[in-house]
Amino acid sequence: MTFVLDRGLVADRDADGLRRMQPDRAYWNNIGPFGGWTAAVLMKAMLEDARALAPEMQPVSQTVDYMTGLKDDPLLVATACDRAGRSTQFWTASLRAAGAPTAAVRSTAVFGTRRPTGGYAEQAMPEVPAADRVDRLDFPNDRIAWPASYDMRVVEGRLFGRADSTRSLTWIRDADRRPLDFVSLAALVDTCFPRPYYRIGGPTPFSTISMTSYFHATANDLAAVDDDFILVDASGKTAGRGFSDQHADFWSADGQLLAVSQQVAWYDLPE
């Protein structure tokens, strides 16, 4: 079976080593590709190239800067290794429309080898009902395609609900039950709806500016999740003067913290 995400990430290499691909309409947002899809494009490219140098490399972190919007034009993906050591690699990648003089999106990532060490956990997974006891979200905007690619079960946090808190708790997985890996996790970390949407009565212009994800799971941890739901615990600390923040934790159903993410976003809301 070819999953929806994988069909949308197919790319061909040209003579210059660039990956050429087409934006996937299944992951369309208001006016361009969903930011999680873009993050997955860049993660896949860097991960493939990192493992070509050292097969044991696994993602440790990824930062994605959304510098300008993308349309439906063909895309070019470029990657570069800034440093490759014995236990870590540092990569950069960029995404631009074919024919455009500059990149629209850029990413940096750290890859590393995982080894047994002592450790600790200072936070436990929130206690929530199991995913099969929560109704699936019916996203109200048909013009935005990407939510249909996910099975979302909202435990807490009503979109456009004028709540006193921006916190939301949501079970989520790929709608076609694609097994979880680092590429799909790179997309999932951007599935949290904008935090201002939980404090105001309707949508407002919004765009993620920069998002950083830290991956605490290994490839084996993600393989153990398989196609099960993961729990997303997201909240924002502040919004004002045109920018808002967000923090999110991503938990496996058995209580393992798989990843955390932080982002800053631009928004517009009259006083």
Rank of each mutant, 00 (worst) to 15 (best):
R13F: 12
A15Q: 13
A15L: 11
M21G: 07
R25I: 11
A26Y: 08
A26Q: 13
I31Q: 08
T38Y: 01
A40L: 10
E48M: 01
D49N: 09
A50Q: 08
R51D: 05
P55T: 00
M57K: 02
V60E: 08
Q62I: 15
D65N: 08
T68I: 13
L70Q: 02
D73V: 02
P74K: 04
A78K: 12
T79S: 10
C81W: 06
G85N: 06
S87C: 01
Q89W: 02
T92R: 15
A93D: 11
R96S: 14
T102G: 02
R106F: 06
T108S: 13
V110F: 03
T113R: 14
R114H: 13
R115P: 11
T117P: 00
A121N: 11
E122A: 11
M125Y: 05
A130R: 07
D132W: 02
D135E: 14
D135Y: 00
F139I: 12
N141H: 10
I144E: 03
A145E: 12
D151A: 01
M152F: 11
V155H: 08
E156Y: 05
F160W: 14
A163V: 05
D164C: 00
S168V: 08
W171A: 03
I172V: 12
D174I: 02
D176C: 12
D176G: 07
R177P: 05
R177G: 10
R177Q: 13
L185G: 00
A187G: 15
L188F: 05
D190I: 06
F193S: 12
I200V: 13
T204V: 15
S207D: 06
T212V: 05
H216S: 11
H216I: 00
A219L: 06
N220C: 10
V225Q: 12
I230R: 02
V232Q: 00
S235K: 15
K237T: 14
R241N: 11
G242L: 01
F250H: 07
D254I: 00
A259R: 03
V260F: 05
V260K: 09
S261Q: 11
Q262P: 01
Q263N: 15
